[in-house]
């Protein structure tokens, strides 16, 4: 019977199909990891570090560094709505928009404006959006100019003071409304400050009891580790989140970017 034939054909194809799918997801993961974890920019002073840990094989979080060639560096962290492969595809779209805008835009506000102009229609068509925090940082002077498209504000830890708050800046997420003009604010990052940019996957990481990692716990770790190198701080946060979740699969991707103005190697 034709139906039986067709059914047996499908069954015989399912194992190779599954294997091919697995292989393609793995390849997609490799591409994403290579794009995300590119070379860290060399800075005359200060240091940067970043990591993204997808909740599934691939994720929708994104961070990037774009040296502006005049001692400033443009930094971006973003969270694409959704998880897994669909979010990863939109993350690539976001990356393309950032890379195109970053070279032409005067500042972080214009970068977000250009990104929204470029991908708003696509995101609306797909019913998605991206939250982004973007900043221009000049480590030599400490000037930190930032713009925000619906993302969490960074945490700043100041030695001997603890956490300090940057003036809050709001903005509609990318893909939220057309023709948005993103405002900028300017702050000053001191020589021994730690600036921690993150996506909500960190503070919303859950343990088996359903408790969340929360902002207070994260801030405590950053205060404790603030004199370490950017990479050591990053490793400490990842370790603490892992200790908390005990390997429980997470719903959201975890991404962080760390900026250290002094960039020295002092231990606590």
């Amino acid at each position: 019977m034709p139906e039986t034939k067709s059914q047996s054909f499908d069954e015989s194809q399912s194992a190779p199909m599954h294997k091919a799918l697995q292989r393609e997801i793995q390849l997609a993961r490799n591409i994403q990891m290579k794009l995300l974890n590119g070379e860290k920019p060399e800075l005359p002073t200060g240091e940067v570090s970043g990591i993204s840990i997808p909740a599934r094989l691939i994720g929708g979080d994104y961070f990037d560094f774009y040296p502006l060639g005049d001692g400033r560096i443009r930094i971006l962290i973003g969270d694409v709505m959704g998880k897994g492969i669909p979010a990863a595809m939109l993350m690539i779209l976001t990356r393309g928009a950032f890379r195109s805008a970053a070279g032409a835009a005067q500042g972080p506000g214009q970068t977000l404006t250009m990104m929204n102009d470029a991908i708003y229609k696509d995101l609306r068509k797909l019913g998605s959006f991206v939250t982004i925090f973007c900043a221009d940082w000049e480590p030599a002077t400490g000037t930190f100019v930032y713009a925000n498209a619906g993302h969490s504000m960074p945490i700043v830890v100041r030695s001997d003071v603890g956490t300090v708050t940057l003036p809050v800046l709001k903005g509609v997420m990318i893909g939220g409304l057309p023709g948005q003009i993103y405002k900028e604010k300017t702050s000053h990052i001191q020589r021994d400050d730690l600036v921690f940019l993150y996506t909500d996957g960190i503070v919303e990481a859950q343990n088996a009891q359903g408790e969340m990692f929360k902002l207070d716990r994260l801030s405590g770790i950053l205060v404790e580790q603030s004199r370490q190198t950017a990479e050591a701080i990053q490793n400490a946060v990842v370790e603490k989140v892992n200790e908390f979740t005990k390997g429980l699969p997470q719903k959201d991707d975890i991404t962080m970017v760390i900026l250290k103005a002094d960039g020295d190697q002092r231990g606590v």
């Binding site: 969270d79 709505m81 959704g82 998880k83 019913g127 959006f129 909500d200 719903k251």
Partner: peptide, 13 residues
């Protein structure tokens, strides 16, 4: 009591 970015996307849609 809790909504994340995916939930916001569902609500907006």
């Amino acid at each position: 009591q809790f909504v994340d970015s995916s939930g916001i996307g569902l609500l907006i849609t």
